[in-house]
């Protein structure tokens, strides 16, 4: 896969206005940080980036030497207001784009991306709380943007902490595949209005006392805020997890309009 963009006719320097079309832009890699054995966070400098909302994604376009182009969507990991745009990408062994992003990109490299995209799976302060976030695998990424955004909001408005109280239920295959593990642990320790609940579905350390199974009805019953508190629910992960969790939450009485989902398929669409 060649470094894309060189032959693109898309202007990358136009200044966007609020109603402008979403432009393809040239993004320059600033830093690549390993998160887990299979995931990397890539930080980009994106000139003209208009800002984004927590939960939005970008489309990444790669162009091969022969002109063949392919696009994938990736959730934005960085919170609104941060100068560097961060994407956390899971390497899919048979993927067309993700191995390039996780293994081949180095500081200074450039790729084409467009965004921010999607106003549906987003959380703003006006959306309110409490928040119940459910993630599977790299489905944590847009939820992490929400958690990080909430941290930034509470830094200037600590009185909102109770209103925006947040629970994250995060399903991973094993402890080494928990993305943002240390950051989540640190945040939960310093903020009593943020609770992080892990479940490990394949293997767990001997000392593990938490959940060791796929997310099910009993687990959701135990961890979700009561329906009467009108929690805002965001579920992101592989399609089967998302459908099972969202369906169960609706059965438990959560209004479908408050349960927002983002599925990602085998091609690495948002996640």
């Amino acid at each position: 896969m060649a470094i894309p963009g060189a032959s693109s006719g898309t202007p990358a320097t136009s200044e966007p206005v609020a109603t402008a079309r979403i432009l393809w832009r040239i993004a320059t890699v600033l830093e690549v940080v390993p998160e887990t054995p299979r995931t990397r966070t890539v930080f980009f400098d994106v000139p003209g980036w208009p800002g984004h909302r927590a939960g939005q994604h970008v489309d990444v376009r790669l162009t091969a030497d022969d002109g063949y182009q392919t696009e994938r969507s990736y959730s934005i990991a960085s919170p609104p207001g941060e100068s560097r745009l961060a994407l956390t990408v899971e390497r899919l062994d048979d993927g067309e784009v993700s191995p390039y992003l996780t293994d081949e990109l180095h500081p200074g490299d450039q790729i084409e991306l467009r965004g921010p995209i999607g106003g549906y799976f987003v959380w703003d302060v006006e959306t309110g709380g409490p928040l119940f976030l459910v993630g599977g695998g790299s489905g944590i990424v847009p939820l992490m943007a929400m958690i990080r955004y909430r941290v930034a909001l509470l830094a200037t408005a600590p009185n909102s902490a109770e209103t925006l109280r947040t629970r994250l239920l995060y399903s991973s295959r094993n402890w080494d595949e928990v993305i943002y593990r240390d950051e989540l642990s640190r945040l939960a320790k310093t903020d009593r209005t943020l609770e992080v609940v892990h479940t490990l579905t394949r293997a767990a350390p001997d000392s593990w006392t938490g959940f060791r199974r796929r997310i099910d009805r009993a687990m959701l019953n135990e961890t979700a805020w009561p329906v009467g508190e009108n929690p805002r629910v965001f579920v992101c992960g592989p399609t089967p997890l998302v459908e099972s969790v969202a369906g169960t939450l609706v059965e438990l009485g959560h209004p479908p309009a408050l349960v927002k989902t983002e599925r990602f398929g085998p091609t690495g669409t948002p996640g």
Binding site: I117, G119, P238, R263, G265
Partner: peptide
Amino acid sequence: IDSLRLDGNAAAGLLSEIFASDVTV
């Protein structure tokens, strides 16, 4: 087929080439 199913938000980028504002909302 089920595993290929995505949400409407996944179409937001493509639809942005057609509609002037974010049609997924």
